[in-house]
């Protein structure tokens, strides 16, 4: 029974990791490519880590929970790096399939433009 659950978690995790990278290759502009790795890969690795925690906990050497740490860390950092990558792409004015909304085209430039949002990112960690 445990074996089946573990196998399911491992297969699902590996499949999501694969789909995340597949999205990286198949999608057509940077902003849509961003979605694959940040979501699918994070959930895939999370699922693998849960499988690992279950596996080591059921081997009779006590509960093993330190995988939770990596999972938490990934789930906190993945959105931050996605946000930063997306901001960098907007800054470089990469081609996008979706039109930018009104008022965003004429972005204010200069070194202090993004201070506000960077402060809020620092708080998130």
């Amino acid at each position: 029974m445990m074996d089946l659950l573990l196998s399911f978690l491992i297969l699902a995790g590996a499949l999501f990791t694969f789909i995340g990278s597949l999205g990286l290759v198949r999608l057509r502009d940077f902003y849509t490519r961003l979605h694959g790795p940040t979501k699918a890969s994070t959930l895939g690795v999370g699922s693998l880590l849960v499988a690992s925690a279950l596996y080591f906990s059921t081997r009779g050497e006590g509960v093993s929970l330190h995988e939770v740490l990596v999972t938490l860390f990934l789930f906190i950092t993945a959105p931050v790096s996605a946000h930063l990558l997306s901001k960098a792409a907007l800054h470089l004015k990469l081609h996008s399939l979706a039109p930018l909304p009104q008022g965003e085209r004429s972005e204010p430039s200069g070194p202090n433009r993004s201070t506000v949002s960077q402060n809020s990112e620092r708080d998130a960690q």
Binding site: Y31, H35, P79, V80, H83, P101, E104, P108, S120, D123
Partner: peptide, 30 residues
């Protein structure tokens, strides 16, 4: 700050959306 960053992180993790930029006056999130 904290509430906005938690919201931005939540948006990144959930339904098919990535938060891209916070307006300098904090009125909008792209």
């Amino acid at each position: 700050d904290l509430a906005i960053s938690v919201l931005a992180n939540t948006i990144c993790l959930t339904p098919g959306t990535v938060s891209s930029r916070l307006a300098p006056d904090r009125a909008h999130l792209l």
